[in-house]
Nucleic acid binder design. Structure first.
Lengths: 228, 228
DNA sequence: AATGAATCTGACCAGATGGTCAAATCTTGC
DNA sequence: GCAAGATTTGACCATCTGGTCAGATTCATT
């Protein structure tokens, strides 16, 4: 109800006012200010990842980006818009490494590479990982459709491939779905629960030896003992 | 600043007003209304687990518990108090199963039991799992100390035990810390990311065959192939 | 240097939200 | 059945927050 009224008001006020996307394109064609968008998205990632959507304060994001609140709202008309933009931007990066597992790959090498890359992501982009975690834990109100379409599609393909490799004896037999979940769970755990990991071990993935040990542990679990 | 003023005000107003804990005990000594506390805690778990601390609305919790907002505030004076209470209550349950891994246990049986129990928890108490995830991902502002003290203590003990078992050849050699993290990560993944899991597989742990497959997959990963 | 568009700002607002309070109602022990 | 305490409620408030707006400032182009 409130939403409807706001929307109407917005449409009625100025027909010429471009929506967020249009404005972004226009700006891109003309000149700078893109730097601002980047800074806003970075700031938004930090704040959303820490406080969740509801907890995030637009002021906090603006401050972190070095802008006034109205100025931020100039680039992203609503908090929702901004949240969506951050999510989209991060999602692309997130889906890339899975695609590198291909039929012509060597199975063990491909999984080793995938696990290593995912763990590097967890180390280098923990905020992105947390953002997804928060979104999915909320029931994925925004990403829901993407999960059911794009992601499912991708995973289905890899599952088929993994199954074939296992049938050929090139990988230990496991349920491929659960195998993938295991890789996601273990790698992202180091990003999402870094507080806990650090409380217990005193280390994070930034510590090289710790990273290596974590990686090896996951490899052992997924691929079985070194030479199976 | 604001906090300080609030506190002062509260203290000044009525010296006789008992804090939340005291009141709880008093009530307990006299009669019912404990049922209310239970209902409130249940409702709070649901709402906090879904929306996080900042996103949770006190009204929503009150509604879910079937009470008016002021009435809820009668039992828990602030949102913080309530959050803390829910967290405490859930934490106890959460730490129990780890303690069952004892020196006199059979190593493989003990880990099998632990994994199974954790997975059952993930199935039966997904909200509790999410609550912890949210808290830890925020940097554990409330549980931080508990993690560094109690939890670390417990884990250190189990790590030593696991190391001994491995030295005796009764378990495959793995870094014990990472082994424990792997168990936590994989089991809780099914609770915290159930939306994603369901989007991809169409199943949840409630489906018996799916539960068994998940369990077996984790067991294989942690314990190595059936007869190592 | 003038012009029009893009960018930025301070002041402001409406609604939501955590929390208060005085008074009403219910229980219990006597 | 009644006093005292426990519980519940409706009305209320101060503050916070997302978002608006009219106008100022900057910028690219001519």
């Amino acid at each position: 109800m409130a939403v409807a009224r706001t929307t109407m008001k917005r449409k009625a006020r100025k027909v010429a006012t471009p929506d967020t996307e249009t404005r972004a394109k226009t700006r891109a064609k003309t000149r700078g200010g893109e730097a601002n968008v980047e800074r806003i998205l970075d700031a938004a990632l930090s704040v959303f990842a820490m406080d969740g959507f509801a907890g995030a304060r637009i002021d906090a994001i603006a401050d972190l980006a070095g802008l006034s609140k109205p100025n931020l709202l100039y680039y992203f008309r609503t908090k929702q818009d901004l949240y969506l933009a951050v999510l989209k931007r991060t999602l692309d990066m997130w889906l890339v490494p899975l695609a590198r597992i291909e039929p012509q790959s060597d199975p063990r090498a491909a999984l080793t590479d995938y696990i290593t890359t995912k763990l590097e992501y967890a180390r280098d982009h923990p905020k992105a990982s947390r953002l997804f975690a928060i979104e999915v834990m909320r029931g994925a109100p925004v990403l829901g459709q993407v999960l059911q379409d794009d992601l499912k599609q991708q995973v289905d393909g890899k599952v088929t491939l993994l199954r074939r490799w296992m049938a050929q004896g090139r990988l230990p037999r496991r349920d491929p779905h659960h195998l993938i979940f295991m890789i996601w769970a273990t790698t992202q755990h180091y990003a999402d629960f870094s507080t806990q990991v650090e409380a217990i071990t005193g280390r994070t993935l930034d510590h090289p030896a710790f990273f290596t040990a974590a990686r090896q542990s996951i490899l052992d679990a997924v691929l079985g003992p070194a030479q199976e």
